[in-house]
Amino acid sequence: MFAQLWVQLLRENHWKHNTHLLSNWEQLNRAKNYISHHINREIILDDLSSIANINKYYLCRLFKNAFGMTPIQYHVAIRLEKAKQMA
């Protein structure tokens, strides 16, 4: 799990320093923050794309490029990590 988090941090750093991709960073951050703050709720991709204000398919592609997983996979990973901490 540490390696996956490390790769995620490297990708985030890459995106933050790439001016072409930086324009989408705010939208991705909104989606990521929503997921992080709604761990115990079901995440619906249509709702998430509305929050990010971009098409759901484009959101999935951007999210995967930035974080190495889709928004739903990220939600599951966050939930699993929280469950591990509670155990």
Rank of each mutant, 00 (worst) to 15 (best):
Lys82Tyr: 12
Tyr74Leu: 04
Trp25Glu: 08
Trp25Asp: 03
Tyr57Trp: 10
Ala31Asn: 02
Ile44Gly: 00
His38Pro: 02
Leu10Lys: 14
Ile78Glu: 09
Asn40Ala: 11
Leu5Arg: 14
Ala66Gly: 03
Leu28Tyr: 01
Asn18Thr: 04
Tyr57Asp: 08
Val76Lys: 15
Gln27Trp: 01
His37Trp: 03
Arg41Tyr: 10
Ala31Cys: 03
Trp15Pro: 01
Ala66Met: 06
Ile35Tyr: 00
Leu80Asn: 13
Leu45Cys: 02
Met1Asn: 12
Lys16Ile: 14
Gln73Tyr: 04
Leu48Ile: 03
Gln4Thr: 07
Glu42Phe: 08
Met1Gln: 11
Leu80Gly: 06
Arg41Asn: 10
Lys84Asn: 13
His38Gly: 01
Glu42Met: 10
Lys16Val: 12
Trp25Cys: 05
Leu22Lys: 07
His38Met: 02
Gln27Asn: 07
Leu9His: 05
Arg11Thr: 05
Val7Tyr: 07
His17Ala: 14
Ile39Gly: 08
Lys16Arg: 13
Met1Pro: 12
His75Ala: 15
Glu42His: 11
Pro71Gln: 04
Asn40His: 11
Ile35Ser: 00
Phe2Ala: 13
His38Lys: 04
Lys32Phe: 02
Ser49Thr: 03
Gln8Glu: 13
Arg61Thr: 11
Cys60Asn: 09
Tyr34Asp: 02
Tyr74Pro: 03
Asn24Gly: 11
Gly68Asn: 03
Ile43Lys: 01
Met86Val: 15
Asn24Trp: 15
Tyr57Pro: 05
Tyr34Phe: 14
Asn65Cys: 07
Cys60Ser: 07
Asn65Ile: 07
His20Arg: 15
Glu26Gly: 12
Leu80Arg: 14
Asn55Cys: 00
Phe63Gln: 02
Asn13Phe: 07
Asn53Leu: 02
Trp15Ser: 03
Tyr74Cys: 06
Ile43Asp: 01
Leu48Phe: 02
Asn55Tyr: 00
Met1Lys: 07
Ala66Trp: 03
Gln27Leu: 06
Glu12Gln: 13
Ala31Leu: 04
Lys32Ala: 06
His38Tyr: 01
Leu21Ser: 11
Ile51Cys: 04
Met1Ala: 10
His20Asn: 08
Leu9Tyr: 04
Gln85Lys: 08
Lys84Leu: 15
Lys56Met: 09
Trp25Val: 08
Asn29Thr: 12
Val76Tyr: 13
Asn53Met: 06
Met1Thr: 08
Glu81Met: 09
Leu59Phe: 03
His20Asp: 12
Ala31His: 02
Arg41Met: 13
Gln73Leu: 00
Leu80Cys: 10
Leu28Thr: 01
Gly68Met: 09
Ala3Trp: 13
Gln4Val: 03
His20Trp: 10
Tyr74Ser: 02
Ala83Ser: 09
Ile44Glu: 07
Trp6Gly: 11
Tyr57Val: 09
His17Ile: 13
Asn40Met: 05
Trp6Phe: 12
His20Gln: 12
Gly68Leu: 11
Phe63Ile: 05
Leu80Pro: 04
Arg11Phe: 06
Ser36Val: 09
Ala77Val: 02
Leu45Tyr: 01
Asn13His: 11
Asp46Leu: 12
Val76Ile: 15
Leu22Met: 05
Leu45Ser: 01
Leu28Glu: 00
Leu80Ala: 08
His75Asn: 07
Lys84Trp: 14
Asn24Ala: 11
Glu42Arg: 15
Ile72Val: 05
Ala77Cys: 04
